[in-house]
């Protein structure tokens, strides 16, 4: 019997629930997404039954194709859980989406039996089922992508925070040991952190040690220059140390000049230079 939205689907789903569930699991096996190697069969059965139950609950008051609406909240939560579980167990996003879309086949078969003599209704209902299941299947893809994006963003943030320590070496002298490749956004953050540290520690000399930087390209060289120029405007002096021979060659080859920056071979000589500049002297007893 058609429901308030005029669709026979909700009624059909609850009437043939058991048959659809059995056929669906068989269909999953047919299209090759029933990965018994990744997931126990009992769990596959549980997820399938749970999805079907939630689907029936979400449609019992009529079919609503807006799966972002409140009515679909439980189904969305359930799909989130299922997708995350499957990602953890090594399923590809395509396999997870196909798991949902494989439900079409048993539903179509039920519809065919039901509306053998009414091709119009059959086509309409089949179309509704297709639209709905495609949306739900693609939704799992969104969840997958969102999860990945969260991970990437978190890792980026952690990496940036981890990788720019500013160390106070002496009164008015700070050092920034750089490790790893500098890309544009990291170079930007390094520059900002460094200049903030200059203000905080009232540093007159800033040593940027690039011993741990594998390559220096034009972009990195320009950022270093910019940092040095900005530090100078604030009243501090930049010293770059740890320039390996091949990096020195690259810098010259790139035609980059470092006029405002003192360069030293290693941190030790940079520190000695800084002490001299700030007027610190040592005497041996």
């Amino acid at each position: 019997m058609p429901d308030s939205s005029g669709s026979n689907l909700p009624g059909l789903l609850s009437r043939y629930q058991d048959r659809i569930l059995t056929d669906w699991i068989a269909a999953q096996s047919d299209v090759g997404v029933l990965r018994a190697d990744l997931m126990r069969e009992a769990e596959i059965r549980r997820q399938s039954r749970s999805f079907l139950t939630h689907l029936i609950a979400a449609t019992k008051n009529g079919l609503n194709f807006d799966i972002e609406s409140d009515q679909w909240q439980d189904v969305r939560d359930m799909l989130t859980e299922v997708t995350n579980y499957r990602v953890d167990h090594g399923f590809t996003p395509t396999e997870t989406a196909t798991f949902i879309m494989a439900l079409k086949q048993p539903i179509f078969e039920c519809l065919r039996d039901q509306f053998k003599d009414d091709p119009n209704t059959l086509v309409n209902e089949a179309w509704s089922a297709t639209v709905l299941l495609d949306k739900l299947g693609l939704y799992t893809n969104d969840i997958y992508l969102r999860g990945r994006e969260d991970i990437i963003q978190r890792q980026q943030q952690e990496m940036l925070e981890l990788s720019t320590p500013v160390v106070q070496l002496w009164d008015r002298i700070v050092a920034l040991p750089l490790i790893g490749t500098l890309d544009s956004s990291r170079a930007q953050i390094v520059m900002e952190n460094l200049l903030e540290a200059v203000v905080e520690s009232k540093a007159e000399i800033v040593i940027i040690d690039i011993t741990g930087v594998p390559t220096v390209d034009t972009l990195v060289a320009q950022h270093l220059l910019k940092t040095a120029a900005a530090a100078k405007l604030m009243g501090a002096e930049c010293v770059i140390s740890g320039i390996r021979p091949q990096i020195a060659q690259t810098i010259v080859h790139l035609g980059v000049e470092l006029p405002q920056v003192a360069t030293k071979a290693d941190l030790q000589s940079a520190f000695a230079h800084a002490l001299k500049r700030t007027g610190v002297t040592f005497s041996s007893r």
Binding site: M191, E192, L195, K226, A230, L233, M234, G235
Partner: peptide, 10 residues
């Protein structure tokens, strides 16, 4: 001079 101002001027 503030850091942000210095960077911007450069």
């Amino acid at each position: 001079m503030r850091p942000a101002v210095a960077i911007t001027l450069v």
